[in-house]
Computed example of a mutant assay.
Amino acid sequence: MGWFLLGAPWDCSASGRGEADAPGALRAAGLTSLVEADLGDADTVVSGGVRDPETGVLALPATVAAAHALTASLTAALRDRPGSRPLVVGGDCSLLLGVVPAVRPAGLWFLDGHPDYLDGATSDTGETADMDLAILTGAGAPSLVSLGGAVPMLDPSAVVLLGHRTTGLDPASAAEVDRLPDALHRIAAPDLLADPAAAGRSARDLLDGDGIWLHLDLDVLDPSALPAVSYPQPGGPSWEQLADVLAPLAASPRLLGVSVADFRADLDPTGDHARRVVELLSEVVTPATR
Rank of each mutant, 00 (worst) to 15 (best):
residue 190 P to F: 09
residue 190 P to M: 07
residue 190 P to V: 02
residue 190 P to H: 04
residue 191 D to A: 15
residue 191 D to F: 02
residue 191 D to T: 10
residue 192 L to T: 00
residue 193 L to G: 05
residue 193 L to T: 01
residue 194 A to D: 12
residue 194 A to V: 10
residue 195 D to K: 09
residue 195 D to C: 05
residue 198 A to H: 11
residue 198 A to F: 11
residue 199 A to C: 02
residue 200 G to C: 11
residue 200 G to A: 09
residue 200 G to Y: 08
residue 201 R to I: 00
residue 201 R to S: 14
residue 203 A to Y: 00
residue 203 A to L: 05
residue 203 A to D: 05
residue 204 R to P: 06
residue 204 R to I: 00
residue 205 D to R: 13
residue 205 D to Y: 06
residue 205 D to M: 13
residue 205 D to T: 14
residue 206 L to P: 04
residue 206 L to I: 07
residue 206 L to W: 11
residue 207 L to Y: 03
residue 208 D to R: 15
residue 208 D to L: 14
residue 208 D to I: 01
residue 208 D to C: 04
residue 208 D to M: 01
residue 209 G to S: 12
residue 209 G to V: 10
residue 209 G to Q: 06
residue 210 D to G: 12
residue 210 D to F: 06
residue 211 G to K: 04
residue 211 G to S: 03
residue 212 I to R: 15
residue 212 I to D: 00
residue 213 W to Y: 03
residue 214 L to V: 10
residue 214 L to S: 12
residue 214 L to T: 07
residue 214 L to P: 03
residue 214 L to A: 10
residue 215 H to R: 06
residue 215 H to M: 09
residue 215 H to G: 01
residue 217 D to S: 12
residue 217 D to K: 08
residue 218 L to A: 10
residue 218 L to K: 12
residue 218 L to I: 13
residue 219 D to P: 04
residue 219 D to E: 06
residue 219 D to C: 04
residue 219 D to Y: 06
residue 220 V to Y: 10
residue 220 V to W: 06
residue 220 V to F: 09
residue 221 L to V: 13
residue 221 L to P: 11
residue 222 D to E: 13
residue 222 D to H: 10
residue 223 P to D: 05
residue 223 P to V: 06
residue 223 P to F: 14
residue 223 P to I: 03
residue 223 P to A: 09
residue 223 P to L: 11
residue 223 P to H: 07
residue 224 S to L: 15
residue 224 S to C: 01
residue 224 S to D: 15
residue 224 S to I: 01
residue 225 A to N: 08
residue 226 L to R: 13
residue 226 L to D: 09
residue 226 L to H: 06
residue 228 A to G: 03
residue 228 A to C: 06
residue 228 A to S: 13
residue 230 S to R: 14
residue 230 S to C: 11
residue 231 Y to H: 14
residue 231 Y to G: 07
residue 231 Y to Q: 12
residue 231 Y to F: 14
residue 232 P to M: 03
residue 232 P to D: 07
residue 233 Q to S: 15
residue 234 P to Q: 01
residue 234 P to N: 07
residue 234 P to G: 08
residue 234 P to F: 14
residue 235 G to C: 08
residue 236 G to T: 04
residue 236 G to Q: 11
residue 238 S to Q: 11
residue 238 S to M: 01
residue 238 S to L: 06
residue 239 W to I: 04
residue 239 W to C: 01
residue 240 E to V: 13
residue 241 Q to W: 13
residue 241 Q to R: 12
residue 241 Q to L: 05
residue 243 A to E: 15
residue 243 A to M: 07
residue 243 A to C: 05
residue 243 A to Q: 15
residue 244 D to T: 07
residue 244 D to F: 00
residue 245 V to Y: 11
residue 245 V to M: 10
residue 246 L to F: 13
residue 247 A to V: 00
residue 248 P to R: 06
residue 248 P to H: 09
residue 249 L to Q: 14
residue 249 L to I: 13
residue 249 L to V: 09
residue 251 A to L: 09
residue 252 S to V: 08
residue 253 P to E: 10
residue 254 R to D: 08
residue 255 L to A: 01
residue 255 L to G: 02
residue 256 L to W: 04
residue 256 L to Q: 15
residue 256 L to S: 05
residue 256 L to T: 00
residue 257 G to I: 03
residue 258 V to G: 09
residue 259 S to A: 02
residue 259 S to P: 11
residue 259 S to T: 15
residue 259 S to C: 01
residue 260 V to H: 08
residue 260 V to M: 05
residue 260 V to K: 05
residue 261 A to M: 03
residue 262 D to Q: 14
residue 262 D to I: 10
residue 263 F to C: 01
residue 263 F to Q: 04
residue 265 A to I: 08
residue 265 A to N: 14
residue 265 A to E: 12
residue 265 A to Q: 11
